[in-house]
Design a protein around this nucleic acid. Structure first.
Lengths: 111, 111
DNA sequence: TCCCATACATAGAAACTCTAGGTATCTTGA
DNA sequence: TCAAGATACCTAGAGTTTCTATGTATGGGA
């Protein structure tokens, strides 16, 4: 059915998590789950393509790591990614404000 | 490019607007624009199919009106639609809380 | 008379996320 | 030892939503 939990806001979430420190994809899944209190329990099939997309947009770059015989792709926020994060956070704030003002009862008078 | 302003939250918005009084599609466009302070300036191609979808889900029902020689389809919230609105508003609140907690800086300690 | 606002509608494109698979390594426990 | 589960990566295709583009029709104002 496509539950669609993040509703088009994945990018801000990923950029923010990576702003708080470099991380690899699999750990980002856990970070989002923890930081959202379990609400964002996203499948890997959501995270990996999104990270690729952000890397291609130059908002992230990456290096391969080898830890205990397992390879990891460590992502880091670029300067351009940090700028994008600021922009995306502003968009988010605007978006919330707009929805909230629609959800506010009309009877109170909008003026 | 697909600006995609409402990001999967159109339904709450429509249900709320119609909860505040019956309305026809074209006027809903204006209502959303006004109540969102111009942020949600949605094309008719977004609104009409969404209203059809909500009507098919029994959250709305409608009657044709004739006003000044122009026909209008007046939509009304059903009881089931009112219940859906409550549920959707709760979802929205949860969603905002989850995003905000991810956007809060990790350095403050999540515990 | 022509254009704009009003008022409806749909088809197809585009974007995003999820489902569902696949590979490989390390650890733990039976 | 061997199976299972956690770790860690990946992609193709489906599904949903929203937008673009287009079409029809009426009423009013310049």
């Amino acid at each position: 059915m496509g539950t669609d939990k993040v509703k088009g806001h994945l990018d801000v979430l990923l950029l923010q998590v990576l702003k708080d420190g470099p991380a690899h994809g699999y750990s980002v899944v856990g970070a989002l789950r923890q930081r959202s209190g379990g609400t964002f329990d996203l499948p890997e099939g959501t995270i990996y393509p999104a990270l690729h997309r952000l890397e291609e947009a130059r908002f992230l770059d990456s290096d391969w790591e080898l830890v205990n015989g397992r390879r990891r792709k460590l992502y880091r926020l670029t300067n351009s990614g940090a700028a994008a994060l600021v922009k995306e956070r502003n968009r988010w704030a605007e978006f919330v404000a707009a929805v909230e003002s629609v959800l506010a009862p009309a009877t109170l008078g909008s003026a």
